[in-house]
């Protein structure tokens, strides 16, 4: 492996062609998916594929770091923020700036063509391979470089990371501009606003299920909207309490009466005994 060669193994070629398609698809999905969460997942997929490519290129440490740091930490941070901002909010894909898509497409196309031309023109038909460099182990080789030649860059990067952490805290920190509301004030406000003072009705009362997505029924049989979380209602995940459900309810009541009657009978029997 010490001499330069111009071809990789067939296995690697097969792997490349398969995974390259996956990576490109993931990248395209990242750009084109309407929902941010889908984009994030597609990007995570692309990154895993890239991790595999790193491994195939002999960058074992980076491959693992790619999976752990990028896919594991960074992408999860992304997902976290997406959830914070609103997971359901979908981008409207209609362009608002006139000519932006066209220009972006033209620029992208030109850029790609030029890059490809550049790479095609470069004398890159031979490669050395990492056999020698990785002979003492990839991690050890990297460590030797990082802690010797690149030690200052490394230290500065560490400082950068700490600064970034502090910066994130500063940016997201909210200064309280007024004293925290006391319980007394909150309750007074609630009464003054005329909101529900008593606890909200619990879901599932008189319902077949006591699950959170089934509204409680009022004595006249209509569903009590207040008993279900507004989030579920907004998502349309409230379970329907229709005629069918009322019929089921009636049947249930019937059954329970029977059960109660039976219970009574048994008790009477027991009492009779």
């Amino acid at each position: 492996m010490s001499t330069a060669s111009s071809l990789t193994s067939t296995g690697e070629a097969v792997q490349f062609w398969v995974l390259a398609v996956v990576a490109t698809g993931g990248a395209l999905a990242t750009v084109l998916m309407r929902r941010a969460v889908h984009s994030a997942l597609s990007l995570a997929g692309t990154m895993i594929v890239l991790a595999v490519f790193y491994l195939a290129n002999g960058a074992y440490f980076l491959g693992i770091a790619q999976i752990v740091v990028y896919t594991g930490a960074v992408m999860m941070l992304f997902l976290f923020v997406v959830m914070l901002v609103g997971v359901t909010a979908a981008d409207s894909l209609r362009e608002t700036i006139r000519g932006q898509r066209l220009l972006a497409g033209l620029c992208g196309l030109g850029f790609a063509v030029l890059l490809f031309a550049g790479i095609g023109n470069a004398a890159l038909h031979h490669f050395n391979g990492l056999g020698q460099a990785n002979s003492g182990g990839n991690v050890e080789g990297l460590a030797a470089l990082i802690f010797t030649r690149y030690v200052f860059a490394f230290e500065i990067t560490g400082a950068l990371l700490i600064t970034a952490a502090v910066g994130a805290m500063v940016l997201t920190h909210r200064e309280r501009t007024e004293p925290a509301p006391t319980q007394r004030r909150l309750s007074e406000e609630r009464v003054r606003k005329g909101e529900h003072i008593t606890p909200l009705p619990a879901p599932g009362t008189y319902a077949r299920h006591n699950a959170v997505d089934v509204p409680a029924l009022l004595p006249d049989g209509t569903p009590a909207e207040l008993s279900v979380s507004p989030t579920l209602r907004a998502r349309g995940q409230v379970r329907d309490v229709s005629e069918k459900a009322l019929e089921d309810l009636a049947a249930l009541e019937q059954g329970s009466r029977k059960y109660l009657a039976r219970g009574n009978g048994e008790r009477q029997k027991g009492a009779g005994r």
Binding site: A13, W17, A27, F53, A104, G105, A112, I119, L124
Partner: peptide
């Protein structure tokens, strides 16, 4: 296969990312 294909893939992904930013 020549590893230069990785570079082509890299260029492709870079361009897709750039267009996405835009």
């Amino acid at each position: 296969m020549n590893p230069v294909n990785y570079l082509y893939l890299s260029a492709l992904l870079f361009t897709i990312g750039g267009v996405g930013v835009l």
